[in-house]
Write a protein that binds this DNA or RNA. Structure first.
Length: 295
DNA sequence: CAGTCGTGGGA
DNA sequence: TTCCCAAGACT
């Protein structure tokens, strides 16, 4: 049974007005060309805005169009990615640029279905590019939007671990009918989640829909259900891979195996991680056995 | 579906 | 200090 939802018209008006007054000035919003939006969306996958900003500017300066990136070695994308984290995203962005040149005449496609075919583009990113770059109506469900709807509509502190059918239905039912308003709505609900309806300490006193919020009306019930598991880090392969790749990324010539061994002393784990980095295409081996970024 | 994949800053 | 988690995608 679907939860009773607030009157869409009032919800829309309040959130859209709030957005007009409080939206952040961001480089991919001020000049939302499809390529700029696409690059920003890749970088923002699991990485905070503040850390993306400088890398984004350098990236667009160097590769102002998909064809420019496609013409560079993938390893250069990995190096330019710097310390944004999850460097396979750099590889996928490079591969997506190649695909755009090969299949779309060098222009970022505008439809959700075409975007979804690109490497590194999943449901969220396809919807985001269609909406933010091309002004099209799309259900943009990111962690911010999911949290806002979980609280305002469902009355719970946090959304389920994975996107549920009913959740998508609610989001779709609340999406304004026309393209431009739907696109504004997508950006507005994301921004509300990012600035006000945050995970840790929501600023309900500044929320335009506090009076319509079911979670608030229920007295802010605590999350009930399986504990949300954190991400292990110390001693994991992720930490090992990160450290090994950083050595190569920060070097200006191929790195000898001895230097890699110095960066991570556990030999079996180090070898396993080097293998996985090679397998992912994040590293290459030179004929004399040293490690480099891929050509 | 559950596990994996980086990094750094704020609470 | 420790913990949490930030505009996800892929297997």
């Amino acid at each position: 049974m679907p939860a009773p939802t607030p009157p869409p018209a009032e919800l829309h008006g309040r959130i859209l007005d709030w957005f007009d007054a409080h939206r952040r000035v961001l480089p991919w919003r001020e000049e939302p060309s499809p390529w700029r939006v696409m690059v920003s969306e890749f970088m923002l996958q699991q990485t905070p805005v503040a850390r993306v900003l400088p890398v984004f500017d350098a990236w667009l300066e160097r590769w102002p169009a998909p064809a420019d990136l496609a013409a560079s070695p993938s390893g250069e994308a990995v190096r330019a990615w710097g310390r944004l984290g999850y460097p396979r995203r750099a590889l996928r962005l490079h591969a997506a640029a190649v695909a755009i040149v090969e299949r779309h005449e060098g222009r970022v496609p505008a439809t959700y279905d075409e975007l979804l075919e690109l490497p590194g583009v999943g449901d969220y990113t396809a919807a985001a590019i269609a909406s933010f770059a091309h002004g099209r109506r799309a259900v943009v469900l990111d962690t911010n939007v999911r949290r806002v709807f979980a609280r305002v509509v469902e009355g719970v502190q946090f959304p389920a671990p994975g996107v549920v059918r009913a959740e998508r239905d609610v989001a779709a039912s609340l999406l304004p009918d026309d393209d431009p308003t739907a696109a504004r709505w997508a950006a507005a609900t994301m921004e509300l989640g990012a600035l006000v309806c945050t995970a840790r300490s929501p600023r309900c006193e500044a929320c335009p829909v506090a009076g319509l919020c079911r979670w608030r009306a229920l007295g802010y019930p605590e999350h009930d259900g399986p504990p949300r598991r954190g991400q292990a880090w110390h001693g994991t392969d992720r930490q090992c891979r990160g450290r090994l790749l950083a050595v190569v990324r920060d070097a200006h010539e191929p790195v000898a195996p001895e230097l890699m061994a110095a960066a991570w002393t556990d030999a079996p784990q180090r070898e396993r991680c080097l293998d996985s980095l090679l397998d992912d295409g994040l590293l290459d081996v030179t004929p004399d056995g040293r490690f480099s970024l891929p050509a």
